[in-house]
Amino acid sequence: MTAPPDDCLARNEWICGEYLSTRRQILLDAVVQHLQLTAVSVLIGLVLAVPLAVLARRWGWAAGPVLGVTTILYTIPSLAMFSLLLPVYGLSAALVVAGLVLYSLTLLVRNILAGLRAVPEETRQAARGMGYGPIRLLLTVELPLAVPAAMAGLRIATVSAVSLVTVGAIVGFGGLGNLIYSGMNTYFKAQVLTASVLCVVIAVAADLLLLGVQRLITPWTRAARG
């Protein structure tokens, strides 16, 4: 019988290089699941949010109910939101995505609507004077001018989604949250710390990436400042 190895895994230390090298595949799979869940949710949220914000802008009476419903959705805690969706989606990745879509949607609708409302009336009148129809006005003037506000909402929604995916561990689809959950049950310190740090790294990286995208697609905001 061989003696148990005396490495950082056996001593259950917080920081453990051995853990990184032996569980590389598990970590990679969890990161990929985390990224997929976040990206899919935020993208679906964005696709739904743009028309909702445009409709709420076009018809003033729709803005109140849209903002009211999204505020109520945002108030519901994440664990309760996932649980309320359980009868509809069962224990599936779709449940986590649906919950996260509802949160992203809230943040995005509010920000895009604020961006559309901030377009100066003079700008709209100038475009109309140049013969722009309502569709062309929306697509080439109003939406581009709302991009900075929309991107601010997108960054908040993405960072929040990265953090909220971990709660999906309750149904087994939590990306790095799954590792945190199983690490908690086995008191595996290295696994919990590594997965937590990776979550924060993903959130910061996603935020910086979106900031870069925002600078690329809105060159005029830099020109105005500089």
Partner: peptide, 18 residues
């Protein structure tokens, strides 16, 4: 506030538990 948003609540709870 931005830092608080990036750190998962669940991760902090489990880290503190250990």
């Amino acid at each position: 506030s931005n830092i608080g948003r990036a750190v998962p609540t669940f991760a902090v709870l489990v880290l503190l538990l250990l």
